[in-house]
Design a protein around this nucleic acid. Structure first.
Lengths: 151, 151
DNA sequence: CTGATTGCAAACCGTTTGCATATCA
DNA sequence: TGATATGCAAACGGTTTGCAATCAG
């Protein structure tokens, strides 16, 4: 469902602007992919999104979905994550709204969280090693409460 | 160079024990791979290790290196990391010695660090979401001091 | 001896690309 | 109309596996 402060239409509009800015073209396929990407929620693989778009756009090719997601990343509207060794995940990118992930190793549920204190400490670590930080990733793996009950 | 508290021979010995425990067999190839893995230092890809072992063991196959590293992971003597979308990295695994990584996006240099305070805060986050934590990863990406000077 | 291991080559599988055709601007 | 985008199918590249030959125990 995207997030609480943006609607699908706003998101698509942002995409359209970014596309025009680059002298690229708007196509039905691109809009369909972008729309579904936003509606689907935060984390999605190319394959999953391809399956979803296929339902309403039976002609679409996998490569188009792949290339549109790549374009979204270039436009800073999406970002990638690699939670396992195989597939890459795409999610919304929102400036000034960095978050990290709690991942259930049983059901693959992904919960997002923010923690300013940790971010601050990360900066300290980087400073101590003379690094100029550009980005970071933090993933906590464990068993969620639902899965704890099951076993 | 492995680490300060273990020698190559001790490491190989630990591997031999683990192998016997499992009713598996010790071969020259396995020992050569394990030795080089330890001597090489912390982070290494299958391909890189294959190249290294090849020099002293021209007959060895890529698959053997791959399978030996996998075996090391099963024996809790190595662990994997995925710093980029392509290759998997292997490094020593040492119980009770968790560390995280600072990675230079220019020269790919990897610096390890530990930070108890952050670890503690991570536990807090997990608790707050009713997660039982099993592991985590934290990677800070930036430009190291050497590369800052260059540009 | 005999079952585990090796080395080779091929299969796998997600990702990426070349290209002829279709489409947007 | 002309450059961009699409869909297909094939290439890529790291990983994994089947299999006959080899070897450790």
């Amino acid at each position: 469902m995207g997030n609480s402060t943006t609607t699908v239409d706003e998101f698509v509009e942002r995409f359209c602007l970014a596309v025009r800015e680059r002298g690229l073209r708007l196509t039905n396929q691109r809009i369909a992919v972008v729309r579904r990407f936003f509606q689907q929620g935060h984390h999605v693989t190319v394959d999953r999104l391809y399956q979803l778009v296929l339902k309403e756009h039976p002609q679409i090719g996998y490569a188009t979905v792949y290339r549109t997601l790549k374009l979204l990343v270039e436009c800073s509207l999406a970002q990638t994550h690699q939670f396992d060794q195989n597939r890459v995940c795409f999610e919304l990118y929102e400036e000034h709204e960095h978050h990290d992930h709690l991942i259930c190793i049983e059901c693959s549920k992904i919960i997002e969280f923010e923690h300013e204190e940790i971010e601050r400490l990360q900066d300290t670590v980087a400073e101590a090693h003379d690094f100029v930080l550009t980005t970071h990733r933090m993933e906590l793996y464990g068993v969620c409460s639902d899965c704890q009950k099951k076993s």
